[in-house]
Design a protein around this nucleic acid. Structure first.
Lengths: 213, 213
DNA sequence: GCTTTTGCATAGCGTCGTTATGTATCGCTG
DNA sequence: CAGCGATACATAACGACGCTATGCAAAAGC
């Protein structure tokens, strides 16, 4: 796979403008075609090729940016002494980020594997793993529990829920109803006490701006 | 939204040939373009327009066929006296069907809402609901449990897992590891006894040809 | 300060989905 | 069975797509 190198020189402003416009077109559900993209910025089609090597390169940059922004948002969450609450808070922020820009979220997972920096995509997952590990250390989860497995299940379930909501198979309200429920089910399965888990998940979920939604 | 009506006259053989070829191209990861599609059947591009009204119509027909085949496959499962086992069996068959043709599964969910017969897409879900309802009647699940909610959570979690596997974010082995685990977590959360649930899920999962995978 | 490299505008190529047009073939009716 | 409208499809062409060849001005390097 050929990986496009970003020019080391200055004038990466055009690059940023193109990506911003692509994200905006994605958000407004406009079809993101090469010509419509550059018409908005005043640049010519060649700009996309000098900066991204073509449309696939642009998509990869957009996906990368999506994961980077997501990682930044999740990194801004302040962890508490309750790792289960933190897991729910991460999930809530993750979901809110996805629903705030559904087209971008879908684009991100069009080809997750093909990124300039695969680490950016793994970062959110690692946050989940570390929280699950903390929960294990604090005896909330069983000593035999596997933090990676718990993180994987929580993530996969949330991803599925989000995808179904984005594709309008499930209504938006389904997410704040079922996401905490699945989270609780997974965490209790990992060993947490049910009532305590329910309180932690509830606290983490509403703590990240999903109240009432 | 304009819905294309299939011609009531005979000679729907061309229609079938086109759909079959489209499914085959999807399976072999060939890009499904109009011209490549008709070149394979000997027909001309117009055939796609008389039968489907255009490429979007073809995609809708393919999605419809995907859901119909899925519904047929799930309908072939013989239910037992253990509804929890049956839930797992449905999930296993669903997952096996999706992994047997990943491109088709992805296509199906590209626009689930836009189908000639939306009932075909709801049918698999209704099977889950009826099993969850049976589990409730048999006191496996709590009397206060909501069969639709349980079905939704099970389905969403499975969908997410499948999508991540299809997009090569998770390895194929992740599915037989995590799917039963999530299922158990959800069903226990619904009220089932943990050890009994684990046995039922295990029995249902391997009962549908996923053993070892 | 001249040469080389870089960044991008212009114009054109091949392919995409789509459509206008022409023409057989089918099915119905008198 | 003759006649005729509707149907099914081949042919050719259109606009828009992603992409590339070419040319030129600005920046970078010696």
């Amino acid at each position: 796979m050929y990986h496009w190198q970003v020019p080391k020189t200055a004038s990466a402003a055009v690059r940023l403008a193109l990506m911003e416009r692509a994200a905006q077109m994605l958000a407004t559900r406009e079809p993101v075609t090469l010509r419509a993209l550059v018409d908005g910025t005043g640049a010519s089609t060649m700009a996309v090729y000098t900066h991204f090597g073509g449309m696939p390169g642009l998509w990869r940059a957009v996906r990368q940016e999506g994961f980077t922004r997501l990682a930044d948002r999740l990194a801004g969450i302040e962890f508490t002494r309750d790792p289960v609450r933190d897991l729910a808070a991460l999930g809530a922020a993750y979901a809110a980020n996805a629903l705030a820009n559904p087209s971008l979220y879908r684009t991100m997972f069009d080809a997750v594997v093909d990124l300039d920096d695969p680490g950016a995509a793994a970062q959110p997952f690692q946050l989940l793993v570390s929280c699950a590990d903390r929960a294990r250390e604090q005896k909330r989860f069983a000593a035999t529990s596997d933090p990676e497995a718990i993180a994987t299940r929580f993530w996969a379930a949330g991803h599925g829920l989000i995808m179904l909501v984005i594709n309008e198979v499930l209504p938006r309200e389904a997410l704040p109803i079922h996401a905490p429920a699945i989270a609780t089910a997974v965490f209790v399965d990992a060993g947490d006490d049910e009532r305590r888990c329910r309180r932690s998940v509830e606290a983490g979920w509403v703590g990240e701006g999903n109240a009432g939604k």
